[in-house]
Design a protein around this nucleic acid. Structure first.
Lengths: 337, 337
DNA sequence: CTGAAAGCGCTTACAG
DNA sequence: CTGAAAGCGCTTACAG
């Protein structure tokens, strides 16, 4: 492998000059530039990343700390991973994907060994045990998902409370007065999945304000349980005319359940969900939904992180992305009694 | 951040001694060991990865080159990613996730900059343009998926030809004599997805050998097209009693289609699929299937790669994992006419 | 059993 | 406009 010394020798200049030609941090005369570039080209020279990192204290690598939770939905997860890696690459960074069981130890290890310039935390929970570590380390970090106390942290998340409000308002506007919300299973909340109760809280707020009856339920994160539970929920609330979904498995199961009950959306029941557009496409879910916006959240989080790394951008940023309804026609006026 | 010099000073020894205590490459007297360890502990010392890489020419990082294809099934993809990162971590390596559009350029960049010790290629196609690059670079690499010409490469894949044979043999053993194979869409084949025709070829071979009629079809990779096509296929072959699935979207859609036609598996029709166990679980697919074995393939590929990195294990290895049927009870004797 | 020193391949003040 | 040299933080022959 060619080193900078090889290039310098070939071009008849010093190593410093080669370095400056490559970085552009100094004006170099055109003929010298030319010779250096040719040497670089013919030797196929690429700077050694380790040496550069040692000299500059910059690795140009970001860590993406993911948690593979068995009840986390794979398509959503992959969308975030993809958004982060693509976003990073566009800004000149590579991404180290870390999924250690022990997130705290992994965080310490990466930070102390200076393998990365910054860290993206995925699946952040209400009382995430990784958060205290973030203040101990030198590298800036950004969270995707909302912790209970976001003070001093850079947080990017969908505004789940507004999402809940918007879902209810949307159905109310079409004339619905009795609704059901189907959330992720309770243990997701217990684990720190604050988005579940945030959305539920927002929905309840708006329901109270508008005088709408809202029944809140949790359902399983996989078949066949979720299907059975959906049937139970329908049985329990025969007068409800609208369904809010904050549970991907329920969204995937609902078309089955509707068919089994001989119901159609939106003729018999209106449906509005909250899940990713990719997910909707893959399963062709026919429901109006609020997009999880993994792509935008991932990219914006990375942009903020890189800003913090490169020009010490404010480390206290909070983006709660406003919800946007993607209309797939599953919401209409309730059937006339 | 503490450096090795800080530790040496605190322990009253040379930097070399600290290094040897940590690496264990030299016998150090117990008292000295003790002092060094205490200093390491109290200073929270972790070696600088860049400096170590520069000194040893080892980064302890693997690259995972993934391709995010729009028609690739996310759950399967994530399983491979997870298997590779977990497998790597268990062997002391971190994983750089790379998904550049231009895989060839990315490969060259990573190799030349010495950011990684080895490379895992995912989604390898029949005539993958990244393969020629592998011979130019210094780092060993391993493929998951089968290229047309595997000579001199380390390849790990499910034995799709045997899989096709096994599926037919399995159904034949239960008495089925007319079968339908539903494969991934044709453009997956065109793109180099050799596993599609490998499975189809194996199935045809066995069908011919056993005197079984086999109808081969391609179907779309998403709803609602795939559902419609399944109906068409049923209409086309009213006497077929068994279905082979090599298409995840078709597997996910089949329960709908069966219900719509008033059919049940295995009473009316026997079904055997090929997809990952995780996928089956998430969607509670009730079909007997051959597991994609992403977990095992990923881990074994990484183990082989690390072997090649660390003790120059043979660079010419080929693992075609034999298919295993996971019985979920969707195959039985055909209905009596 | 331990240390002084060279070297890994870069970048960047410092000097001209 | 360019170069000689120091330094980044490690590891590892070499020497004792």
């Amino acid at each position: 492998m060619a080193t900078i010394t090889d290039v310098a020798l070939a071009a008849g200049v010093s190593r410093a000059t080669v370095s400056y030609v490559l970085s552009g941090k100094r004006t170099i005369s055109e003929p010298v530039c030319q010779r250096v570039r040719e040497a670089v080209e013919s030797l196929g020279y690429t700077p050694n990343a380790g040496a550069r990192a040692l000299a500059t204290s910059q690795t140009k690598v970001l860590a993406l700390m993911a948690r593979f939770l068995s009840d986390e939905f794979a398509p959503a997860m992959l969308e975030f991973i993809r958004a982060v890696t693509d976003g990073a690459r566009d800004l000149g960074y590579d991404t180290l994907l870390v999924s250690d069981e022990d997130g705290v130890a992994a965080l310490r290890r990466l930070a102390a060994s200076r393998m990365v310039d910054g860290i993206v935390l995925l699946n952040v929970g209400e009382n995430d045990d990784r958060l205290p570590v973030l203040t101990e380390i030198d590298q800036p970090s950004v969270l995707i998902g909302s912790p209970g106390d976001p003070a001093g942290l850079m947080v990017f998340d969908l505004d789940f409370r507004s999402t809940g409000r918007l879902m209810v308002r949307h159905l109310h506007a079409f004339g619905h007065r009795e609704l059901v919300l189907v959330s992720q299973p309770r243990h997701v909340v217990d684990r720190g999945g604050a988005y579940v109760w945030r959305l539920a809280t927002g929905a309840k707020e708006m329901a109270d304000r508008l005088g709408v009856t809202l029944h809140r339920h949790h359902a399983a994160a996989s078949q066949p349980d979720v299907g059975r539970q959906l049937h139970d929920i329908f049985d329990m609330h025969p007068d409800a005319t609208g369904i809010l979904l904050n549970n991907e498995a329920a969204a995937a199961a609902l078309p089955f359940v509707l068919r089994e009950r001989g119901l159609r959306a939106p003729d018999d029941v209106s449906v509005i969900g909250r899940y990713s557009d990719d997910f909707a496409r893959a399963f062709s879910l026919p429901f109006t939904a609020i997009d999880s916006a993994a792509g935008e959240l991932g990219r914006r989080a990375v942009a903020q992180l890189v800003g913090a790394i490169e020009d010490g951008a404010p480390r206290d940023a909070h983006l709660l992305l406003p919800p946007v309804v993607i209309d797939r026609g599953s919401v209409a006026q309730p059937p006339q009694p």
